[in-house]
């Protein structure tokens, strides 16, 4: 395997004032691939994403190793992080209704991502933003550039978000539930755009989601998290051969079109799964 983009070893995150750490001893490496992190609400998957960008001012982050390219994220200063965020590592947030600034034009918000990291004229940044809008398959980029966030649809808003976060061509993009706020009909469309761009530009992707089927189709590898711990790591294609009872429970609880109409099984949760297991991590 080529040199990994990201190496995480024994990452633990403890929100100050919380009785228990939100994330415990998570380890994984990421190459130029698409890694899915799956888990139920509160499993710590989003926290992992935000910790990588060091966006958790109220949490203590500890790890044996947190290497991003040449940068040791654990000891990186805020100044170094400013250079990394949006430039080498970025994040697509969940709901464009809330993640875009309501009083600034969409286009300006995209161009700002470029202006922050590259010395260039406003005009050039605008050209780049327009080109990027085209790349996320917006038919009339000039029109959308001048729209305010409340004037675009959810699917459009998420494409704007993707354009904003991929504009500086980062090496790693974290997509935090990128489609869960969208209508089912546009979900696949938006995912396809994201997927195409990520492959084309050779960007590493971490897809955080609670949707096992989605992750199975769009990722190479899947991390299953439960109560702040990784319980199993699998190739997406081998998901059906999962060993861990929690993963198997998740799989069994997926509804299927054309499946039988019996009630879906209720997910079994056992406290011992949140304890470290032999042979993993």
């Amino acid at each position: 395997m080529e040199t990994p983009i990201l190496e995480v070893e024994d990452l633990s995150i403890h929100y100050r004032g919380a009785p228990q750490p939100a994330v415990r001893n998570v380890s994984f490496t990421l190459g130029r691939e698409r890694l899915g992190i799956v888990g139920e609400s509160g499993s710590g998957k989003s926290t992992v994403g935000r910790a990588l960008l060091k966006l958790l001012p109220t949490a203590d982050i500890t790890a044996k190793r947190l290497q991003f390219g040449e940068t040791d994220l654990l000891n990186a200063t805020e100044k170094q992080m400013l250079d990394i965020r949006g430039n080498r590592m970025s994040m697509i947030l969940q709901d464009p209704k809330f993640s875009l600034n309501p009083i600034r034009r969409c286009g300006e918000q995209i161009a700002e991502a470029y202006l922050t990291h590259f010395r260039c004229s406003k005009r050039e940044a605008k050209e780049r933003a327009l080109a990027m809008l085209e790349a996320v398959q917006i038919r009339d980029p000039h029109l959308v550039y001048n729209r305010y966030p409340h004037e675009v649809s959810g699917g459009m808003g998420q494409r704007i978000m993707i354009a904003m976060m991929l504009l500086a061509e980062p090496r790693l993009v974290i997509a935090d539930e990128p489609t869960s706020a969208l209508d089912v009909t546009v979900r696949l469309e938006v995912l396809k755009i994201l997927d195409d761009l990520v492959r084309e530009k050779g960007i590493g992707l971490i897809m955080i989601s609670h949707d096992l089927n989605l992750v199975r189709n769009f990722c190479d590898r899947v991390l299953i998290m439960y109560a702040g711990r990784v319980v199993e790591t699998l190739n997406a294609a081998e998901l059906d051969r999962a060993q861990h009872p929690y993963t198997r429970g998740l799989l069994a609880a997926q509804p299927r079109i054309g499946g039988n109409r019996q009630p879906l099984p209720v997910l079994d949760r056992r406290p011992e799964w949140s304890q470290p297991m032999e042979g993993t991590a």
Partner: peptide, 14 residues
């Protein structure tokens, strides 16, 4: 605490 503020931070704004 709004998400768009997080977006601004993710973009690398000071």
């Amino acid at each position: 605490n709004q998400e768009y503020v997080t977006t601004a931070r993710v973009k690398g704004l000071s």
